[in-house]
């Protein structure tokens, strides 16, 4: 029999992970698949699983003047029903897996799973989203892009838990999210691309771009974004080839059972080019 814990309060959870070698499971839509041993056999866990779906205090969406705060145990489908959900985030959730999975999956689950193909990750990166990480007696706020250090790797310690995702509210002149999967629904990304741009008086004053599934982590290059900010829109378009060339070196996809690296690279750059052309 596996020793597991289904807490109903945050404090119980933090105490438990402080005193046990534990693994928090929030949604389980990927983790239970990774750990399964077969029908009618208990999945394989080296650490005690803690299922957090019953912590009511972490199931919320709140808005402040500048931010939207999303409780760690809020299923992503709730974000689809919430009016104030940033449109980019909504777009990524709409194409995430299937309705059944969206009713269970959570943003912290997507973050901690740390897959380069995680659907919400490029969005959380370019929106400069942060997470609140708590232990029994401390808490810290860290940007999502600094939480993930590699495929399936994060900075979280075993006594720490993400309790909240904090997304800044911002208005962009233009933004979009493109997911390229093997089919139109219920697919894992071969490539994803997102952008958010602010344009004032024909000048780009804020430029953010990110790519998913074309490297070990989400690709967002702030130094390149800065390089092409405060540029006239027409000039920006003229620089298309240069921009593509600047990004090319960072797009380092692999061959796998879902696609190949040549396709991933070419399509990632096509999407970048198309973004520039149609801006």
């Amino acid at each position: 029999m596996v020793d597991y814990f289904i807490p109903t309060t945050l404090i119980d959870t933090l105490e438990f992970i402080n005193n046990n070698e534990a693994k928090i499971i929030s949604g389980a839509t990927d983790l239970m698949v990774q750990r399964k041993k077969g029908a009618e056999i208990t999945p394989y866990f080296t650490k005690k699983p803690v299922f957090v779906f019953n912590i009511k205090e972490l199931n919320f969406i709140k808005e402040s003047y500048e931010h939207i705060h999303i409780g760690a145990c809020t299923p992503v489908s709730d974000l689809l029903n919430h009016k104030g959900t940033p449109s980019l985030l909504r777009k990524s959730i709409e194409v995430m897996a299937s309705p059944a999975l969206r009713n269970l999956a959570t943003l912290p689950g997507n973050i901690i799973n740390a897959s380069p193909a995680g659907d919400t990750l490029p969005i959380l990166y370019i929106l400069d989203a942060s997470v609140k990480i708590e232990t029994l007696n401390s808490n810290r706020i860290v940007k999502v892009k600094d939480v993930i250090t590699g495929p399936r790797r994060t900075i979280l310690n075993s006594n720490e838990m993400i309790t909240e995702v904090i997304v800044p509210k911002e208005e962009f002149t233009k933004s979009d999210f493109v997911k390229v999967g093997g089919r139109k629904a219920d697919a894992i990304s071969k490539i994803s691309f997102t952008y958010a741009v602010k344009i004032k008086e024909n000048k780009i004053i804020d430029l953010r771009l990110a790519f998913g599934a074309v490297g070990p982590v989400i690709i967002r290059k702030e130094e390149l974004e800065e390089k092409y900010t405060n540029i006239e829109l027409s000039k920006f378009k003229e620089l298309k080839q240069e921009i593509i060339n600047d990004y090319r070196q960072y797009i380092t996809p692999i061959n796998d059972q879902r696609s190949n690296k040549e396709y991933r690279k070419k399509v990632a750059l096509n999407l970048l080019g198309d973004f520039i052309d149609t801006l």
Binding site: G182, R183, K184, A185, D186, A187, I188, Q257, R258
Partner: peptide, 10 residues
């Protein structure tokens, strides 16, 4: 997940 067949959306 990896063997992709058309869904109702496709």
């Amino acid at each position: 997940t990896d063997y992709i067949i058309p869904t109702s959306v496709d």
